[in-house]
Amino acid sequence: MRLAVISDVHGNALALEAVLADIDRHDVDAVLNLGDHFVGPLEPVRTAGMLAKVEMTAIRGNTDRYLVDADPDLLDTHDQETLAALDDATLSWLRALPETRVFEDQVFLSHGSPLSDETYWLDRKDRKAFRVATGDEVAAELPSGKRYPLYCCGHTHVARVITLDDGTVVFNPGSVGRPSFTMSDRDSASRWSAAAAYAVVERSAEGWHVNLRQVAYDNMAAAAIANAHGSAKWARDLEHGRTR
């Protein structure tokens, strides 16, 4: 079984287009989508049209939840613009998405951790610094009951793989639309990149293998779109890779 896992598109249609083209070259059996689809000063309508054509298993992220559940008057300007731009069919699709999901009795999907869509599962913030979560900290967020061999999460935009002592693999594919950096539990060096991030995971006789991928796209054009929508911060992140 070979799967593509995407997360945190955030309305970046240019990045999504490049990632979907890369997925097509990997002959995957299914696409899993971990949420945060549209919020951002980019192209939510075009993104919605592209995602509607993809056969995938999806969940909703925290910004999806804000968009459809929060009082519109409490949303910031960019979120209000996104909400106004999306059609009723897209918003109904978002509302219907579950917060977590299990694929083929093998892969547990969550946006943050399985217990909260706002938890940084594989990262921790100590004072002003971020660090990789320990195995015990990661395991503490696993729900009681049945354990699955593979867990995936998004939210931090940081691509990372952690293997627990019992062999359970937990990973974050990174962000398609607002990439940050890549780090695994076997590699202490972080690699900053503005390339769109996702993962291809494959099951063999030895278990699950996670291939964290980075796909170049016209990130400067995406940055220009963010600037045109009045967000210099997003533009800087899209130019160079998201910073803390």
Rank of each mutant, 00 (worst) to 15 (best):
3 L>R: 08
3 L>M: 09
7 S>T: 05
9 V>W: 01
12 N>P: 03
12 N>E: 02
13 A>S: 14
17 E>T: 15
20 L>A: 05
24 D>G: 09
24 D>M: 01
24 D>A: 15
24 D>Y: 04
27 D>A: 13
27 D>M: 04
28 V>T: 13
28 V>C: 09
29 D>N: 12
31 V>R: 00
37 H>F: 13
41 P>H: 09
43 E>S: 12
52 A>W: 04
54 V>C: 03
55 E>W: 00
57 T>W: 01
60 R>T: 01
62 N>L: 11
64 D>F: 08
65 R>P: 01
65 R>E: 09
68 V>Y: 06
69 D>Q: 14
75 L>N: 11
77 T>M: 10
80 Q>R: 15
87 D>H: 12
87 D>A: 11
88 D>P: 06
90 T>Y: 05
93 W>P: 08
98 P>S: 05
100 T>D: 03
104 E>F: 05
105 D>N: 11
106 Q>T: 13
107 V>R: 03
108 F>G: 00
109 L>D: 05
109 L>N: 09
110 S>H: 11
116 S>L: 03
118 E>L: 13
120 Y>V: 00
120 Y>C: 06
122 L>N: 10
124 R>L: 02
124 R>N: 06
124 R>W: 01
124 R>E: 04
125 K>E: 09
126 D>V: 13
126 D>R: 14
126 D>H: 08
127 R>C: 02
130 F>K: 09
130 F>V: 03
131 R>H: 14
131 R>F: 07
133 A>S: 15
140 A>D: 14
143 P>G: 12
145 G>A: 12
146 K>L: 12
147 R>I: 03
157 H>T: 05
158 V>P: 03
159 A>K: 13
161 V>P: 00
163 T>Y: 05
171 F>E: 01
173 P>S: 05
179 P>N: 06
182 T>E: 00
183 M>E: 10
185 D>W: 07
194 A>L: 02
195 A>D: 15
201 V>A: 10
203 R>L: 12
205 A>F: 09
208 W>P: 05
208 W>A: 03
210 V>M: 02
212 L>R: 15
213 R>K: 15
218 D>W: 10
218 D>Y: 10
220 M>G: 06
221 A>E: 13
223 A>S: 12
224 A>I: 04
225 I>K: 10
225 I>L: 10
232 A>M: 11
232 A>T: 11
232 A>W: 06
235 A>T: 08
235 A>Y: 12
235 A>H: 10
239 E>G: 06
239 E>V: 08
240 H>M: 11
240 H>T: 14
244 R>T: 07
244 R>W: 10
